[in-house]
């Protein structure tokens, strides 16, 4: 009895040693900021620190702040536009790069390459490619081909979303493509062979075998994309800085500006909780979905 007790204690101690380094960091930099944020959100809080206790004022204030809702709507728009675009493009690229072809490895590497670039690099590339008046790549190409019309990719309220979503898709599709490819490789060849014997055409095989079997992967990518897209900030900040006007300013940029440009850290912390809420709900769905996927 006492030997068993001793062993339990010993195990606890060993586990503690192994867990301690991570747990400390996790508490300080992941869990504690959540609590700190909640605390801050109850105050008027400047860059130089705590000012006045104002209770729930920050919360009631942002609920009535039309620029908050505007920014949240922009983020939502980005999610709505980018998620299907990225999923369809990734799937297309995966199907292309998973065919029997001598250039298979090259395709995969090429499609994945943009994923490796830093967000600053892809943002500047986007700006330089989209500039009008013969200064950008596309404009220059159109001029070379004899098209005189100018396209204002970053000024037109619709085109600016096309530009941002297009850039993001170009940048991130490679990753999801790889997820699809690994799922494609898990589909047993026998299924296709059997279908071929039954006389099913390649396109029929695609619709009746491949796509249905990719459903779990699509669900996974969908959720990962939703979560990632709600956090969108860096590329929009660098490409349009939220413009023209506030047409593309996402929620995180608004939070960032409130905190570090307008010195309202408390207000920013309160708004973060709206984003937090959205992300928690999505993460819970994801956890549930992956758990069901495991079964």
């Amino acid at each position: 009895m006492s030997a068993k007790r001793k062993r339990i204690w010993r195990n606890d101690l060993v586990a503690l040693v192994f867990l301690l380094p991570f747990t400390v960091l996790y508490m300080v930099f992941t869990i504690y900021p959540v609590i700190q944020g909640l605390y801050m959100s109850l105050f008027k809080w400047g860059l130089m620190g705590k000012q006045d206790f104002i209770g729930a004022d920050n919360y009631t204030r942002f609920l009535g702040d039309k620029f908050f809702w505007g920014a949240l709507w922009n983020t939502t728009k980005f999610v709505l536009y980018s998620t299907p675009t990225i999923i369809l493009m990734s799937l297309g690229l995966a199907l292309l790069a998973n065919r029997r072809s001598p250039l298979k490895r090259l395709y995969r590497a090429a499609y994945f390459t943009p994923n490796l670039l830093s967000v600053s690099v892809i943002s500047f590339l986007a700006i330089y490619i989209l500039q009008p008046y013969g200064m950008g790549f596309i404009s220059n190409l159109l001029k070379t081909l004899g098209v005189q019309e100018e396209i204002f990719f970053l000024k037109d309220p619709q085109l600016v979303w096309v530009s941002i979503v297009g850039t993001t898709a170009w940048w991130t599709c490679g990753y999801n493509m790889m997820l699809y490819i690994s799922a494609l490789q898990d589909i047993p060849d026998q299924l296709y062979e059997a279908a071929a014997i039954d006389g099913a055409s390649p396109s029929k095989q695609l619709w009746s075998i491949t796509l249905p079997l990719l459903k779990p992967t699509t669900l996974l990518i969908l959720l990962l994309q939703l979560i990632a897209s709600f956090k969108v900030f860096a590329q929009i900040r660098l490409i349009t800085n939220g413009g023209p006007g506030h047409a593309t300013r996402p929620l995180i940029q608004y939070i960032y500006q409130a905190a570090f440009e307008k010195n309202r850290l408390g207000y920013a912390a309160a708004m973060s909780y709206a984003l937090f809420l959205i992300l928690v709900v999505l993460s819970l769905i994801q956890l549930k979905a992956t758990r069901e996927g495991d079964r």
């Binding site: 992941t30 939070i255 973060s272 992300l279 928690v280």
Partner: peptide, 12 residues
């Protein structure tokens, strides 16, 4: 912790 994104806790 999976549910706590840095982006949402950046200020604190």
């Amino acid at each position: 912790g999976l549910m706590v994104p840095t982006e949402a806790t950046i200020v604190p």
